[in-house]
C-alpha cells in the first residue's frame, strides 16, 4: 500500500534528461508551471502536452510509472472537476433535480483538470529524473546569491537533502511497525473513522520514537565526520554546464517565448 506512492520518487534510467544539470531542470520546471498558467486555451494545452510528451519520451520513464503516482491524487482531480462542473453559473446545458451544468462550468472543469494533470505530470518528471542529492545541490547553487543576504541557503538545502533522503527510510520503518503491530493482531483496515484514528496510535508513537532516534544518530555521525555547516565546504562533483545544458536552456526559453506568443495571437 505504502509502496505505491511514486510522488517524489527517483526512476533510475540513463537518458538525456537524467544527465542534464539539475539547475536547468529546476528552472525548466518552474517556467513550465508559469507557462501552464499563461496558457488560456485548449490549443495551448495540446501544445504543452506535446512538448511534455517529447520530454517524457526522452527521459525513458515509462508512462505507466508516471500515472501510478497520479493515482494517489485522483481524488483531488475528481474533486476539482466536480466542483467546477456544478458550481459555475452560465448557460445551462443540462439539468437534473438540483444539479445544473452550465457550458462555462463544463469548460472550466475540463480546463482546470487538464491543467492539474499537466502540472502534476510535468513537475513529477523533475524528481523522477533527478537524484534527490543533485536536486538539492542544484537548489543550493541557484539560491547562492541569497546567502549574501544572510539567508542560510546551505542549511536549507541540507535540511531538504536529509528530508528527501529519509522519506524511504521512514516509509520502510512505517511498513515494519505496521507489520509488527499486525503480527500482534492489530487491525488497521476495518472499523469506523474514530476507531481507525485510534488504531493509528500503535504506529505513530513508535514511528516518532524511531524518527528521533534516527535524527540523533545522524547528527552524531555528521559531527563525527566534522560537519560544521556550509562555509568552506567544497564539492566532490562541482556542477558545470555542458553543451547539452546550453541546448536545453535555449529550448526551454524558446518554448516559453512560443507559449507567450500563442497567448497573444490566438
Amino acid at each position: 500500500m505504502i509502496r505505491d506512492i511514486t510522488l517524489g520518487q527517483y526512476y533510475n534510467a540513463d537518458s538525456v534528461i537524467h544527465r542534464l544539470d539539475p539547475r536547468i531542470k529546476i528552472i525548466a520546471s518552474l517556467l513550465y508551471i508559469v507557462e501552464l498558467f499563461v496558457v488560456d486555451s485548449f490549443i495551448g494545452f495540446f501544445y504543452a502536452t506535446a512538448a511534455l510528451g517529447l520530454v517524457i519520451a526522452l527521459s525513458k520513464v515509462p508512462l505507466s510509472f508516471i500515472f501510478r503516482g497520479m493515482k494517489a491524487l485522483l481524488i483531488i482531480l475528481i474533486f476539482t472537476f466536480v466542483i467546477n462542473l456544478f458550481m459555475i453559473d452560465g448557460t445551462i446545458i443540462f439539468k437534473l433535480w438540483i444539479f445544473t451544468i452550465s457550458k462555462e462550468g463544463l469548460y472550466a472543469a475540463l480546463f482546470m483538470t487538464f491543467r492539474l494533470v499537466l502540472l502534476i505530470t510535468g513537475t513529477s518528471l523533475l524528481t523522477l529524473t533527478t537524484k534527490p542529492i543533485s536536486l538539492t545541490d542544484g537548489l543550493e547553487r541557484l539560491l547562492y546569491p541569497l546567502s549574501k543576504l544572510k539567508v542560510p541557503t546551505h542549511e536549507i538545502a541540507m535540511m531538504m537533502t536529509i528530508a528527501l533522503r529519509f522519506i524511504p527510510t521512514l516509509l520502510e520503518e512505517t511498513d515494519k511497525i505496521i507489520k509488527a503491530q499486525q503480527a500482534r493482531g492489530a487491525d488497521f483496515e476495518s472499523g469506523n473513522l474514530i476507531n481507525r484514528a485510534k488504531n493509528l496510535i500503535p504506529i505513530i508513537v513508535p514511528l516518532f520514537v524511531s524518527a528521533f532516534r534516527i535524527a540523533h544518530d545522524l547528527a552524531m555521525a555528521m559531527e563525527a565526520r566534522c560537519y560544521k555547516g556550509g562555509e568552506g565546504r567544497t564539492r566532490l562533483h562541482p556542477m558545470k554546464y555542458g553543451k547539452r545544458d546550453l541546448v536545453a536552456y535555449v529550448l526551454v526559453f524558446a518554448f516559453l517565448a512560443s507559449i507567450i506568443l500563442l497567448r497573444i495571437f490566438i
Binding site: E173, K176, I177, K179, A180, Q181, Q182, A183, R184, G185, D187, I201, P202, V205, P206, V209, S210
Partner: peptide, 21 residues
C-alpha cells in the same frame, strides 16, 4: 481469518523493542 493465524503463529520481528508504544 488473519486473526486466527496471528493467534497461532506469533512473530517477533528484528529489534522488536521499536514497536513498543
Amino acid at each position: 481469518s488473519m486473526l486466527d493465524i496471528r493467534k497461532k503463529v506469533g512473530l517477533v520481528f528484528q529489534y522488536p523493542e521499536y514497536q513498543l508504544f
